[in-house]
């Protein structure tokens, strides 16, 4: 494709990204550095600040979260679940906006989402993280990494690999326009198990790869190896998802009362 077409494609993905995802990296960074103009996020760093935070932060999912008597770990886990379910809906809308996606075999659309959504979730989670913690509840709160590490087993391990990934990923210095094309590429991976018709998927991904290469060349002229570095991150993402699925198996075995949302059950079943 011509360079102008590739720029149009990259711009289109950025517009979809802004349309379907509630918080951009730019917004998250502004909140974390106190430049957003809003009030600073409420910092949750121990059990008492968590209790205070639950009073002052407006969570969207009040109805589906266990009551206050429930263990902290279970409440946090259920909030993570709810946010993941919302994210799957957002990512599905984003995927449908990728030119050519809705013309793919419907079974293949399901497969691409089944395998892609968590890689996208963990890519975008990096935007909300720094080495010390992560923004929660659309930027109203900031939960520290140390607090999460202090939760009981196995919940203390839930986010640590994602922090490790986030710190390295964030060091690439990508902006929202770069991330938008990258996650479209992640979704259109032609090597997902069980795909029926790989060729059109690879063709779409190829256009996006060209759009990303050009985007990075123009947007980061001083980082000539950024494209190659970014593609290597796709391997790390698969590893993180595999570990995440293993942790969920552990949680389901050890935590009798833990309910997994039906949408997440669908996605995790026979995943890896």
């Amino acid at each position: 494709p011509e360079a102008a077409d590739l720029r149009t494609l990259a711009r289109h993905m950025f517009e979809s990204y802004c349309k379907y995802f509630p918080i951009t990296k730019a917004k998250a960074r502004a909140i974390m550095t106190g430049k957003a103009g809003d009030k600073s996020p409420f910092v949750i760093y121990d059990m008492s600040s968590l209790k205070a935070g639950e009073e002052c932060i407006t969570f969207r999912q009040q109805a589906s979260v266990p009551p206050h008597g429930t263990a902290v770990e279970i409440r946090i886990f259920q909030r993570c679940q709810f946010r993941s379910v919302e994210a799957v809906r957002e990512i599905t809308e984003f995927a449908k906006s990728i030119p050519g996606f809705v013309s793919l075999d419907l079974n293949d659309q399901v497969t691409l989402l089944k395998y892609g959504v968590h890689e996208v979730i963990f890519t975008m989670l990096a935007s909300l993280m720094n080495k010390d913690g992560l923004l929660i509840a659309a930027g109203q709160g900031f939960m520290t990494r140390e607090f999460i590490k202090s939760l009981r087993e196995p919940f203390c391990h839930m986010l640590e690999p994602k922090f490790g990934f986030a710190v390295k990923f964030n060091s690439l210095g990508l902006d929202d326009g770069d991330i938008a094309v990258f996650i479209a590429i992640v979704i259109l991976s032609g090597d997902r198990p069980g795909l029926v018709n790989v060729k059109p998927i690879e063709d779409l991904q190829d256009s996006l790869l060209q759009a990303l290469a050009l985007q990075l060349k123009l947007n980061h002229p001083d980082s000539p190896h950024l494209f190659a570095k970014l593609l290597q991150k796709m391997t790390d993402l698969r590893q993180i998802v595999t570990e995440h699925v293993q942790l969920l198996h552990t949680i389901r075995k050890t935590e009798g009362e833990m309910n997994l949302h039906p949408l997440l059950q669908e996605i995790y079943k026979d995943l890896y």
């Binding site: 379910v85 919302e86 799957v88 809906r89 599905t92 809308e93 449908k96 809705v102 419907l106 079974n107 659309q109 399901v110 497969t111 989402l113 089944k114 069980g194 949302h261 039906p262 949408l263 669908e266 996605i267 079943k269």
Partner: peptide, 20 residues
């Protein structure tokens, strides 16, 4: 496959109609 992924399938068809 779409039979085993009813919610994902419905999200792909019309996400606004799906009550999660």
């Amino acid at each position: 496959l779409k039979e085993k992924h009813k919610i994902l399938h419905r999200l792909l068809q019309d996400s606004t109609s799906v009550d999660l």
